[in-house]
Amino acid sequence: MITAALAFAVAAMIVNVVPGLDTFLVLRTSAVRGRGCGLAAALGVMAGCAVWGLATAVGLTALLTASHVAYTAVRVCGAAYLVWLGATALWRGRGKAEAEPVELSVAAGRRAAFRAGLGTNLLNPKAGIFYMSLVPQFMPQGAPVFGTTVLFTAIDVVELAVWFWLVSGAAAAMGERLRRPSFRRRMERLSGVAFLGFAANLLADRP
């Protein structure tokens, strides 16, 4: 089991550090709204991964590949959510940036960041397929499926926590140096276009 867990940890880390929607969301949120919001977004992503992992452990994610309707429903909802995030970012990046109340930036901002991280992960069927396709490859023969899947999910979430901690710190440091209204507007516009691109890619995907 130790050998299998180590092998899974290496494979999962390779997948986690490849630039994707989750990393982009944490990076963008940290640069624009600070590390606190970036870590809140990361926590949302990790919560989504935990849900997908548990769903895989009980066999629910198999529905995504077995049912075209289920996969398409999650995919379309995910794309719609990304379009909403993209449109919101583009709207914020328009014209002259307005100052936000402190309580909105800190309290509501972190809650919104958490919801964004959770939503983008849970509404991305690729996240579920990741666990369903990767976990069985490292499952030791005769090992309990539920317990092993939960263990592998925990390993992945811990690795994500370390990775997002590094990403959020670097992005927040960059944002502090460039925390000007013009920089924030450009970041919001870039983020909006990127979210729309992720939405188009998700819509084009097929199970």
Results as ranks from 00 to 15, higher is better:
107 A>P: 00
96 K>L: 12
154 A>R: 04
139 M>S: 09
59 G>K: 07
20 G>Y: 11
125 P>E: 08
4 A>L: 02
76 V>I: 15
156 D>G: 02
13 M>E: 08
34 G>D: 09
119 G>A: 12
98 E>H: 13
51 V>L: 04
206 R>K: 15
89 A>S: 13
172 A>M: 02
110 R>Q: 15
101 P>Y: 07
52 W>Y: 15
167 V>N: 13
156 D>V: 01
67 S>D: 08
112 A>E: 11
31 A>T: 12
70 A>M: 07
87 A>Y: 11
36 G>A: 14
65 T>Q: 09
9 A>K: 05
47 A>C: 13
186 R>L: 11
94 R>C: 03
62 A>F: 00
138 F>T: 10
166 L>T: 15
55 A>L: 14
141 Q>E: 09
161 A>H: 01
192 G>D: 01
44 G>N: 03
153 T>F: 02
53 G>M: 02
170 A>V: 15
197 G>V: 09
158 V>G: 02
121 N>K: 00
131 Y>F: 15
54 L>N: 00
12 A>W: 00
157 V>L: 00
195 F>V: 01
28 R>I: 05
20 G>L: 10
68 H>V: 13
132 M>C: 01
167 V>Y: 08
5 A>G: 06
171 A>H: 10
141 Q>R: 09
138 F>D: 07
15 V>Q: 09
60 L>M: 11
207 P>I: 15
155 I>P: 00
125 P>C: 04
94 R>M: 07
6 L>G: 04
24 F>Q: 10
146 F>Q: 11
80 A>D: 02
4 A>Y: 02
46 M>E: 01
132 M>Y: 03
26 V>W: 01
53 G>S: 05
151 L>M: 09
13 M>L: 14
199 A>N: 04
182 S>A: 14
207 P>E: 09
50 A>Q: 00
50 A>F: 01
82 L>W: 00
104 L>M: 09
38 G>M: 02
163 W>Q: 11
101 P>I: 13
19 P>T: 14
26 V>E: 03
37 C>T: 10
153 T>G: 02
42 A>H: 10
124 N>H: 07
183 F>P: 07
104 L>Y: 06
49 C>A: 15
4 A>I: 01
163 W>P: 00
139 M>F: 03
166 L>R: 14
124 N>D: 12
169 G>S: 08
90 L>I: 12
84 W>D: 08
105 S>I: 04
39 L>E: 06
38 G>Q: 04
43 L>M: 12
113 A>D: 06
197 G>N: 05
56 T>R: 00
66 A>N: 08
65 T>D: 04
54 L>T: 01
111 R>G: 13
40 A>G: 04
133 S>N: 09
102 V>G: 05
17 V>S: 11
116 A>T: 12
139 M>K: 14
19 P>E: 10
